[in-house]
Design a protein around this nucleic acid. Structure first.
Lengths: 364, 364
DNA sequence: ACCGATGATGTAATCGATTACATTTTCAGG
DNA sequence: CCTGAAAATGTAATCGATTACATCATCGGT
């Protein structure tokens, strides 16, 4: 009766099971962990005791002893980003297959949030870390490398050596973007960037310019609008676009949302897509196929990025010898859809009526 | 030299810090946990030792002793769903504020995945659970309630008593949907459902029918297409729609993706939205404002659902007395945008040319 | 100058599993 | 039937923190 009231639900410990089964705790543990090291009889005995008592091992105790938590931390800049969400699904798939759990380290685009996840990792609350934020998180005092925890970078390679990464062919894709657009006859282009200085951002821009050069153009033919990954970048870019005298006839956006934001805003102002301006996205999010017109874009293998990244991380955790293929560069696929078309011909200002900043400073 | 090689990175334990600072482990622990219970001198001494040694408490040990993990599990049907992603952001915000971490239990729409998260919860790997899947997860043997863990249901109330929930006014909203559409003169309606039997699904349908009744119609005026939460439901619904003789003039979809899928498919077949058919969504995902035309829909307070749910859970974890407001029904807001308009008048078949299943079985 | 209360610190038990090592059982081979 | 290796099981140390309890120091009040 005494000491009875405070535990509404019984806490069953391994010792209870052992007593119930008439064996030692060691044997119970073995039955659960290595069933083949145990007599069939004891096995059934113990399992029955487990069943009857409703025993579930306490993971804190287990983690302490085994020095493993079977948990992985995924640090993402923004949980709500559809690309990252898909990558997380891929990660989750692979982790689940190996019995690992997923802890989300959502930065919500605020870098100061990293500190918390550094602590999480360094306190060994997880066995490994997947980084999708393009750099090593730090908390002011220390950074994540200090723990000696297995880490893998996704989407963007790390600025330091020794961390395997899974990325896509950003540069090549951007080059193809330039090829695609110039081939359609576009000569005045624009680029809506992601966050300045971001690795993949830099890659994509560089690739785009390279592609322009190949086509006999240069970066002087290409406007650059600074932005973030999101709709807003497209909106502000569009605002500028509409203000411009000699408008670009093709726009390459570093992500689909920017592209879609841009399209919405310019169409609202009467600009036709792709009639007046072609728009090319990047990512291939599900929604890009449901806009009107459907968005021409590059499809990233999002699920596979996550899956492969998690796979590599698990191998690191298991301390497998580093084989080839610790670094992956996955290809992307150009989806030619409805928002790109031939450059408008003839007049320099396809939408001259809207160009308010200059009368008609035309050229050809 | 011996035993030196296997630890590339030193594992600093609390005892090391204690020795370095010339105090006991208890004091070190106190400095870190309850700094006010300690002399300023010892405080600096210990902190200095912590700094010098790079000590970080081992969370497994701490969790074992304190019986807390400072982690919360969120069970979601589908991580990539934009509504759930936004809710997760809200959850994360609130958890972060209290120093809690977030473990994701992604079901990926496969119910058998629940088992794993039941184990996770029952093994006390987390301090509480947020359920967004509309029922109590089980693993065949046992279900989540057995652990006596704090739980809160989000989006959908639980079929059992005793679990606080945060939901939105699904029924009221659906009634308003009916009101909105009938007021525009629509009399032949259709409903694209979510997964059959899903709580919120049931609520929304019931509300919609109620609304129709109020307008003097009945469920005989309303087609019902079974679906899931996603684009595909809209596509299949559209396929059926296009096949129909007497087409509905207004469609209410249980989620924005279904609505958008429907719109894409019918427009591809030459049906005008909202000219020939009005479409009303639910959720108010970010994209719904970037489709063309922009989607008329109900905006859920997604972030707030997550935030409030996490808040309640944290209070449960802290064993606060149950005040009022453990159950929340948040309002939704109708966003009247571009996909709903007056019912097409005159001919019974606004798009008769497309109705291939019947010649012209018109009426009015 | 002494007492008791208050506050700071130390000692050691504790959380609940895993596992190294010791012990017992089993069984093939002589 | 005996022997020794292999297999099964048991005993107890261990993981690394927190915290109850014991001890010691401090200090105001008389």
């Amino acid at each position: 009766m005494a000491g009875d009231r405070r535990r509404t639900q019984k806490e069953v410990r391994i010792a209870d099971v052992a007593r119930l089964a008439g064996v030692s705790t060691a044997t119970v543990s073995r039955v659960l962990a290595t069933p083949d090291k145990v007599t069939p009889l004891t096995h059934t005995l113990v399992m029955e005791a487990v069943r009857r008592s409703g025993y579930i091992p306490n993971s804190a105790a287990r983690n302490l002893r085994t020095r493993r938590t079977m948990m992985v931390l995924a640090v993402v800049p923004n949980l709500a980003n559809p690309v990252l969400a898909q990558i997380l699904r891929g990660i989750d798939d692979e982790l689940t297959r190996s019995g690992y759990g997923l802890v989300i380290g959502n930065l919500d685009n605020r870098r100061e949030r990293e500190a918390r996840y550094v602590d999480l990792a360094l306190s060994r609350q997880v066995d490994g870390v997947l980084l999708m934020n393009g750099h090593i998180p730090e908390n002011g005092q220390r950074d994540m490398t200090e723990a000696g925890l297995p880490m893998v970078a996704l989407c963007a390679a790390m600025p330091v050596e020794g961390i395997p990464h899974v990325v896509v062919e950003d540069r090549e894709a951007a080059r193809e973007a330039a090829r695609h657009l110039t081939r359609l006859g576009h000569e005045r282009l624009a680029y809506i960037s992601g966050p300045a200085g971001h690795v993949i951002e830099t890659e994509r821009y560089a690739g785009f310019i390279e592609g322009l050069r190949e086509a006999g153009l240069s970066e002087r033919n290409c406007l650059r609008w600074e932005g973030v990954f999101g709709f807003s970048a497209g909106l502000t870019a569009a605002a500028d676009f509409l203000r411009i005298d000699e408008r670009p006839t093709a726009v390459f956006a570093a992500c689909d949302e920017s592209a879609l934001g841009f399209i919405k805003a310019v169409r609202a102002a009467g600009v036709a897509v792709p009639g007046d301006v072609s728009v090319l996205g990047f990512d291939g999010i599900e929604f890009s196929d449901y806009s009107d017109p459907t968005l021409t874009t590059f499809r990233q293998p999002m699920h596979e990025i996550g899956r492969a990244g998690a796979d590599i991380l698990l191998r690191l955790i298991r301390k497998e010898q580093r084989p080839e293929g610790w670094n992956l560069r996955l290809p992307v696929e150009l989806l030619e859809r409805g928002t790109t078309g031939p450059a408008p011909r003839g007049k320099a200002h396809p939408t001259a009526s809207l160009a308010r900043t200059a009368g008609s400073a035309g050229e050809a």
